[in-house]
């Protein structure tokens, strides 16, 4: 464990907490893409199947369980408990266009053609694009609440920090994983436009509003 990975994980955890608190406190999931949340739930359940087969550390197990449980809880809040507030008219991204290509790519480019490995690879590919429905929703409505912006910033920072972790591990441990690195780069690049708006607008107290 190095500082970049720890900060990345904490940033990821913070993002999830911000989102759950926002939904719980306002009793509303307006402005949040349920499609992205479904994709994240698929990502964590397919990636952490090794919970049942491999023990790494208490930290690792704890975080995996938290990520699976909170992603399922978010989907439940959006599609069941606070369904009436869900912005489904604007959340029109077709997630099969992300799921199917990610799965085909995982079958073609992986470390080993075994079910657990293919699902791990699929989850890495899917995670890299899972935020697209959310960004699509923000671009469709032309704005995002500050709290949604903080959520997106924390979530985007997580994979960005992992990039530094991978650079560190490459030099310090001679370890690297190209599948994770390339997908992580794609994932971080997708947030760049948002990062720019966040730093130039939201941090200065303005609402995130896209130019008309």
């Amino acid at each position: 464990m190095n500082i970049f990975r720890l900060l990345g994980d904490l940033s990821h955890l913070l993002a999830i907490i911000i989102l759950l608190l926002k939904i719980w406190k306002t009793r509303s999931c307006a402005g949040i893409s349920g499609k992205s949340q479904i994709l994240f739930a698929i990502v964590y359940t397919t990636r952490y199947l090794d919970l049942f087969t491999t023990f790494i550390s208490a930290y690792n197990t704890f975080m995996k369980i938290i990520f699976i449980a909170t992603s399922l809880a978010t989907v439940f809040l959006m599609y069941v408990k606070f369904k009436a507030t869900y912005d489904h008219n604007h959340d029109t991204f077709r997630i099969e266009f992300l799921i199917l290509p990610a799965f085909v790519l995982a079958l073609l480019i992986n470390h080993e053609l075994s079910p657990v490995e293919v699902l791990w690879t699929f989850s890495i590919y899917l995670e890299s694009v899972a935020i697209l429905p959310q960004l699509f929703l923000v671009s469709k409505t032309g704005e995002a609440e500050s709290i949604t912006s903080h959520y997106l910033f924390a979530l985007g920072s997580y994979r960005g920090l992992y990039l530094f972790n991978w650079i560190y591990r490459y030099y310090a441990e001679d370890h690297y994983d190209l599948i994770a690195i390339v997908a992580g780069l794609v994932q971080t690049v997708l947030y760049c436009d948002f990062f720019y708006l966040y730093i130039t607008k939201v941090l200065k107290g303005k609402k995130l509003q896209l130019p008309a």
Partner: peptide, 10 residues
Amino acid sequence: SEKKKRKDEL
């Protein structure tokens, strides 16, 4: 192993 190293990440 390499596989284990990869799986220790989240």
